[in-house]
Nucleic acid binder design. Structure first.
Lengths: 212, 212
DNA sequence: ATTAAACGGTAATATTTTTTACCATTTATT
DNA sequence: AATAAATGGTAAAAAATATTACCGTTTAAT
């Protein structure tokens, strides 16, 4: 039996945190629609009333979980210095970090769930994208713009380049991961991919290159 | 009031078709979890009993809908001759068809729903992928292998090339489409993208090309 | 000390949804 | 013609679930 009663000062958010932890874990495991609030309450040793006090209901709880997820997934991609150095190496390093981030099981699942529920939570989907992928995209766009001015890259819309590089990194594998048809790649696998994808992106696959 | 009673010979599948049509439309509009069988029955002018007779329940109905969706989405991508002609033009033509196919609202939605429900229907997700994306991937892989032997492409794993090209075509936009943050592109837009993406894929974006 | 706030636990309520049952009707089968 | 099969419509039964209410407890606030 977990102690009940009004929480002590400084411990007001313990129930809230326990609740968010349990909710995230259960959602990741079973999906949004398959988890009942009763299950969540039991798992977090929290009363139903607390859920409604803190989040107003299932939708609010889902929103809070998603919001808490958005931040960590982006920060890891923006570690300072990742996009420094020679363009090729910088891109490959970024590619590794990005690939690692988006292939973690939790990240795959949370995006899958959000995609599935985006019709019911359009605002949440937008917030998620703006706080996560959007910021990564902006960063990468600036990187391309900067190195274009230095003459490294062909003159193309840097936003287009950034989108294409991210698309190349996601690749077809992400779909298989989202559908549960492929297992999580390890770090070595990711580094290999990152290098191959970066090379292909920079040099193309044509043997005879026409002059520009 | 729609006529009831045992269907005439040759009309046995009318109820079934009406049911699948309504189900698909309602799922696309509201998602799997938010549609009740009662709603479906009303919409299709079908009795609950017929649903259970034909499909055994909601899960079976979902499966039948997904299976019926898998085929059309792939056939359009494999029209004969799409991958013939000069490699660049062939790829660009394929790119247009592929992009058009995967950006149609229905295709985006059905994939989003399947991704969201893949935990509950792992077999269905696999069938969907094998009958749709997998076959497209195989076709494209053969294309790259063929043209590699003719000396057009760099010597790289043709499966890798095929995956990367599909990934480049999906791009970051697909995520925004799936999250409902972007509207469906029209044919002109798609053709522009197809050409740009193909060019970038073939030639890369580096200004100084190292010798191979 | 007393009161009020917030909690965990249980349970009751209300709503939704799945599933099953029944009836009249139409057609196939015999 | 009689029977069986399959249907649409309604509704009832059953299950699940979201939501609200209540109780005893612990702590903060006064």
């Amino acid at each position: 039996m977990i102690k009940c009663g009004r929480p002590r000062k400084g411990e007001e958010s313990q129930s809230r945190d326990r609740l968010l932890d349990s909710t995230l874990r259960l959602f990741l495991e079973h999906g949004y629609g398959s988890v009942s609030l009763e299950t969540v309450a039991k798992d977090a040793h929290v009363s139903m009333r607390t859920i409604y006090n803190q989040f107003g209901g299932k939708a609010g709880l889902f929103g809070a979980v998603i919001k808490r997820c958005s931040d960590p997934f982006v920060t890891v991609l923006l570690e300072d210095g990742t996009l420094e150095g020679q363009p090729e190496d910088a891109l490959a390093a970024f590619a590794s970090q990005f690939l690692y981030g988006i292939t973690r099981p939790d990240a795959v699942r949370i995006r899958a769930i959000l995609i599935g529920e985006s019709l019911k939570f359009p605002d949440l989907a937008m917030q998620f994208y703006e706080q996560g992928p959007q910021r990564t995209l902006d960063h990468l766009r600036q990187f391309f713009a900067r190195h274009q001015r230095l003459g490294y890259f062909a003159i193309m819309d840097p936003h287009f380049l950034a989108e294409q590089f991210l698309g190349a990194l996601r690749g077809e594998r992400i779909l298989r991961l989202q559908l549960g048809l492929e297992s999580t790649p390890d770090e070595a696998q990711i580094n290999t991919w990152a290098r191959q994808i970066t090379t292909l992106f920079l040099q193309g696959c044509l043997t005879v290159r026409r002059e520009k």
